[in-house]
Structures are given as structure tokens and as C-alpha cells.
Design a protein around this nucleic acid. Structure first.
Lengths: 242, 242
DNA sequence: CGACAAAATCGAACGGTGTGCGATTCCTTT
DNA sequence: AAAGGAATCGCACACCGTTCGATTTTGTCG
């Protein structure tokens, strides 16, 4: 059985003969550490310390750090919710998108990883399965089903990632959110001198609730994507093959 | 002048009295190394070696590795093209999206970085300025201008990132693209056993051109976003404030 | 030209990383 | 009790980003 593409998911987890360390514990501890201190803070030594064991003991249960991260990411996938089959597709998709955004904002480290490698974990696969069911229910068929849900995923991921980046950049300083937003303007205005239109435009943001603004932007984009999907259904270019 | 948010762009580059090393050279060499061997392969020591100088000499021209990456990313921003003001907005946006996708596929390392930190470099700012002009020309006003272009950016980034991830995963093996795609199916089918619908669906992909399929998916999504933007213009909910 | 200061480069070193390996301990089964 | 696999551990290796002080190069002034 020569697998050219050996992934975590092709291998069974070690039997775990009720040992003091288990895959599940390790992943849980890793997620806690990641949530609390971010991606850079996760090292095998620190994780070992948190688990009260040697750093290298982890390697018995997990092949390497990458594989551990894959497991952690799939765990995050598992926390994204998708409404049941009785929900209208637009509502279902909207609820899913908001859930995914919320989960990613809660586990900021996952956003980068999620896009960085193919997602083949059980939770990810189950989620895609659910999304495809929604797509077919809406009226898509053939490849259009894939295109539909991957368009949606692309938007949510692409919209949330920079949001997280801003939070991280702001969070590394001490000041409050809006307060620092104003301070950033001096930098921005500096870089923006050659673009008066842009500068004038951003002046109107001086007194805005940043969080609310981001949520509004997300809803705007989501509405666009939904309308776009709807348009393709109406136009009938969502056929079984093409 | 207590900047809370000191970025590369607030500091002037070192005068560069025609030294043997300059910021521009360093960034150029870094990009070459990144293009050739990926993000993980870039270390200050290796970069120094490539430049024929000591590793630590670089720190005279650049504060740290993060700052170097910011410069490299902005360079990538600079290679994305946006059609001039005489182009209809739909065409302009479409051309931009395809250009951005192409550039990111050409510099895969940039995709992750691009979403990981706020983009305040001159090229990034210029690009946003241009996008906002297009947005206003289309008929958006107020915050809707921002929402429009950030929706677009979100889609392109979110769509291209997983594409790159797949390429990297496949590229790390020796086999050809479609060939390995088939081999992957055995893994997929394995993980997919509990999802017969999904498995059946993916069976139809066995004999498909992967690259072409991805391009089609991208165009599908882009059309959705464009239609969605158009819908908001028609409906008139792109007012100066709301 | 020599002198001197500033600019630029460099090597050594510090604390950290992921991980391979051999020795060691633990637990289960006979 | 003995044996043998399962699980843990410490050490070591090669590499990383970055700091710091010493060193070399370079431009300017007398």
C-alpha cells in the first residue's frame, strides 16, 4: 500500500492503551495553548511542559508538529455549525458563514493554517458534505455544486483572515481599539499623501465603531455572494455538466 | 513623536551611500529565494550567503525579518495590475482579479503573508486607491466603496490561498498533477466512506484537468461576486452612509 | 595626502526551535 | 517472576532570529 500522500488521516491513532498521554489530550492542550498565546507560542517543549511530560513523548502519538496542527485545525472545523436540511438555503448558508467567521475569530491561529493545506480531516469532510447537500437543495448540480460552496468558503476565509490580522496587530499594543485606530491614521495619512482621494475617504472613519464596521462589511460581502449564487440559479447556468 | 504602531513605512530606508548592500537588493534577493524555495527556506543566514555577505549585515538595512517580509509583500502588490479609468468597472474588476490571482500563484509564499498583516506599503495603498476609484466609478459611495473592494479582495485571496495549498501539497511529491489527483482519491474515499453523496460526487472528477477546473471555479466565484455587486447597485443600497 | 568620524560589515554567542536516537521505565500477558 | 512490547524521557544535532562589540570600509575635511 504505497500511499504517495501520507497524511494524518490515513493512519490510525495509536491504540492508546489508556496511557497517561493520548492524542485527544495532546490536541486539546495544543488548542488551549494556541488560543491563549497564538501560533508562535506553540512549541513542542512548551506543550510537553503543559502536559506534564517530556517534549519528545508527544512524538509517540503524533508524527510531527505539522500533523498536530492538522489535527487541531480539524477540531476547529468541527466547531463550525451548519443548519439542518429543513432550513432554506439562503438562511443556511448565511448562518454557516457567520458561524465560521465567529469560530475563526475565536481561534485566530486557525485561519492561516486552514488555508495553508488541504483539509481532509473528518470534520472538514463532513462540513463539505453538508455544504454540498445545501448546494444541491438550492438547485445546483454537477460541478456547479463545488463551485458554489468553494466560492462561499473563499469569501468567508478571505474576509476573516485580514480581520484577524488587524486584531493581532492592534492587540500587540496596549491601547484600546478605536483609540489606536485614530493613532494609526497618522501613519496612514503619511503613507497616503500621494492619494488624496483615499485620505479624504478615510477621514470619515475617525469616529466609527471598528467592530461594527467590520461586521457590516462582512454582511455586505456575504449578501453579494448570496445574490451572485442566486443569479446563477435564476439564469440556469448551474447545469449538471458545465 | 511616539508612534504606537511603528511599521517599516514610517521609517526612511537607510541613506544607502552606494554601499555594497542596499535595501532594494536585499528585497530582490529575498523574493528570488522565496520564489525558488518557499517561505520556510528563507533564513537570514541563507539570504546573507546568497548576497555574498554576512547574515547579520542585513540588519543594518532592515530592522528584522518581519519587516523584510513586509517589504517583499509590498513588492508583490506592485506587480498586480489594475486597468485604467477608461475601462468599464466590471471589466476592470475582472482583470484585476485575474491579475491578482496570477501574481499570487507566481509568488505562492505571498498569499499567506498578504492576509497575515495589515497592508500599508506604498504599492498596496496605491492599489487600494485605484480600486476605490473603480468602485466610485461604478456607483458606490461612502462606506459601500470600502465594502465593495474588500469583498472583492476577500474572494480573490480566499479563493487563491487553498489553490496554492493544493499545489504545494502536490508539488512536494514527484508525480504529475492529474496522476496524483487520482491517487489522492484513495485517501479521500477512505475519509469519505461515511459520506456516500460526496464520494459519488467526486467520482466524476477522476478524469478532469485540474488546472482548468480550478480556473473555472475561480471564474464562477468571480461572476458571483460581480453579480452581487451589480445587484447592490441596482437596488440602490450603496448610499453615502449606510 | 593623512586623519577622523561615520557608515557598513562581520563573527561569536545567546536562547530558542523541531526532531532522531538510544536508554529507560511502565504495564500487560504469559 | 519473566518477558516483551508500549510509552516516556534526556541528550544531541542542526538550524533559527537576533544582539553586541569589534572590525573594516568609506566619505569628508584640513
Amino acid at each position: 500500500m504505497n500511499q504517495p500522500f501520507s497524511s494524518v488521516w490515513t493512519r490510525e491513532p495509536r491504540p492508546a492503551r489508556s496511557a497517561t498521554l493520548s492524542r485527544a489530550q495532546i490536541v486539546r492542550a495544543a488548542i488551549e495553548l494556541l488560543d491563549a498565546e497564538g501560533l508562535d507560542a506553540l512549541s513542542m517543549r512548551r506543550l510537553g511542559a503543559k502536559l506534564g511530560s517530556g517534549a519528545t513523548s508527544i512524538y509517540w502519538h503524533v508524527a510531527n508538529k505539522d500533523e498536530l496542527l492538522e489535527l487541531a485545525v480539524d477540531e476547529v472545523y468541527g466547531r463550525i455549525t451548519l443548519p439542518g436540511e429543513d432550513t432554506a438555503w439562503r438562511e443556511a448558508v448565511s448562518a454557516f458563514a457567520h458561524s465560521m467567521r465567529a469560530v475563526l475569530l475565536e481561534h485566530p491561529w486557525a485561519a492561516v493554517l486552514l488555508g495553508s493545506r488541504p483539509s481532509l480531516g473528518p470534520n472538514a469532510v463532513a462540513l463539505v458534505d453538508g455544504l454540498m447537500k445545501v448546494g444541491r437543495r438550492a438547485g445546483f448540480a454537477g460541478m456547479a455544486v463545488d463551485h458554489a460552496w468553494s466560492t462561499l468558503l473563499a469569501f468567508v476565509l478571505g474576509a476573516t483572515t485580514p480581520e484577524i490580522a488587524w486584531r493581532a496587530a492592534l492587540g500587540s499594543t496596549r491601547v484600546s481599539d478605536t483609540e489606536l485606530m485614530k493613532a494609526t491614521h497618522s501613519v496612514a495619512e503619511d503613507a497616503v499623501r500621494d492619494h488624496p482621494d483615499l485620505a479624504a475617504h478615510y477621514a470619515q472613519y475617525k469616529d466609527m465603531d471598528v467592530e461594527a464596521g467590520r461586521a457590516a462589511a462582512f454582511d455586505f460581502g456575504l449578501t453579494c455572494v448570496l445574490d451572485g449564487l442566486q443569479a446563477r440559479l435564476d439564469r440556469g447556468d448551474a447545469p449538471p455538466s458545465g
